[in-house]
Amino acid sequence: MPSRTAAADKIKARLDALTALRSGGALNDVASNYTQLRAFGRAGRTVKNVRLRRTYVRHDVPRPVDRERNGLPRDEQPPAARLIAPRGVAGRLHLILLFAAHCQAAPGRQWPNRIPIEPDSTQRLSWMGLIGAHARHTPGGRRVASPRVNKARQINEALKKLRDQHLLEFPNAGTSRPFQDFRLLCDSGASTDAAPIPYKVPRAEAPGIDVPVEFFTCGWVNLLTPSETVAYLMWLDVTQNPEHDEPYVTGVERAGHFGLGRDAYETHETLEAFGLIDVDPALLRHEDGKYTDYSAEGGSPICHRVTLTDGVTRNAAEAIEPVLRQYAATGRWGRPLSSLSDLAASLGIRIPS
């Protein structure tokens, strides 16, 4: 677990980035561009969910793990988990690419990407306008990089990482514009250098998970951390493709199927504070993950039960900022007590209507 000082520094940096994105109008611009993308996509179709192939987030057959706390080694993880990184925007960019594909291609069809990285006079949309990344001005040195240049660099580095993970390819590699008209490869993660598999929008009957379109249009894709995002995808899978009669995931399943370590699992605290999930905690489980009087024989596993809420339909920035400020003040995750009804609910008191 990070120290209190390190955690506070991360929260401050996250708040600073969120404030910059909101005050500069970037989040509103991105939301407007998503609306345009949906409106000028497939005629007569309205995208309600973005379907991910199940193997994007979860191995069909669990891999053996040495320690479930650590999850799988990176090269053995499913594609979504492999994109978790403290820096860079590869994970969120890939999800936004899949969102764009759903807007512009029918199920079962390939997506012809014609969106440029930077805006120009011939295009309404650009990848710079579709990703809400906070790119700072870089002073000093021999070259001064503007926020625009830094953001373009972030996107280019993310594209290269996605290529390295066999999630897209560069048909114009080796030219003066290597990233132009890049092509998505299948999100199953089954492509190789020798045998790339073109991406096709999944049909409804294909095994997968449906990500609500509001995850994109309401800003969550740009404001959750990579670990929070992949954990949210895990809980979507647990709900939509249940393996148990209750919504939980064991440590072995979380590590062997999803490839995730305990740090990613513990984001259930932030996801609950943001209002995306509700958590029914295991009563005998301590905060460090250990159990009281645990017996493996009989009974249900001592795991938190997690259910999805409709919180994804809320504006992400408005939901996240007060939670971060409360954590900065108290050092604990929780939903802000912004009203008397919230306070009553936290105390188990029912107020008559």
Score class of each variant (00 low, 15 high):
Leu224Ile: 00
Glu68Gln: 14
Tyr232Leu: 14
Gly88Glu: 08
Ala81Phe: 09
Lys161Gln: 15
Glu157Gly: 09
Arg142Lys: 06
Asp181Val: 11
Arg203Phe: 05
Arg335Lys: 09
Ala26Trp: 04
Arg350Asp: 13
Pro147Gly: 12
Leu37Cys: 10
Ile209Thr: 01
Gly140Lys: 00
Pro79Gly: 07
Val201Ala: 07
Arg136Asn: 07
Gln326Ser: 15
Gly208Tyr: 00
Arg14Cys: 10
Ala13Ser: 11
Phe170Gln: 06
Pro78His: 02
Ala316Trp: 03
Gly132Arg: 06
Ala319Met: 05
Val238Ser: 09
Ala152Gly: 14
Val47His: 01
Glu272Met: 03
Leu184Glu: 02
Arg350Phe: 13
His94Arg: 01
Gly141Ile: 01
Lys160Ser: 14
Leu308Met: 04
Gly108Glu: 10
Ala17Arg: 14
Ala145Lys: 12
Ala81Ile: 07
Ala296Val: 08
Leu236Cys: 08
Pro202Phe: 00
Ala296Met: 01
Pro116Tyr: 01
Leu347Ala: 11
Glu169Asp: 04
Gln180Phe: 11
Asp288His: 00
Pro198Ala: 09
Glu205His: 09
Glu266Val: 10
Glu68Asn: 14
Arg163Ser: 08
His304Arg: 02
Ala105Arg: 07
Arg109Ala: 15
Ala204Asn: 05
Ala13Arg: 15
Asp280Gly: 10
Ala20Val: 09
Tyr265Pro: 06
Ile197Pro: 03
Ser346Asp: 12
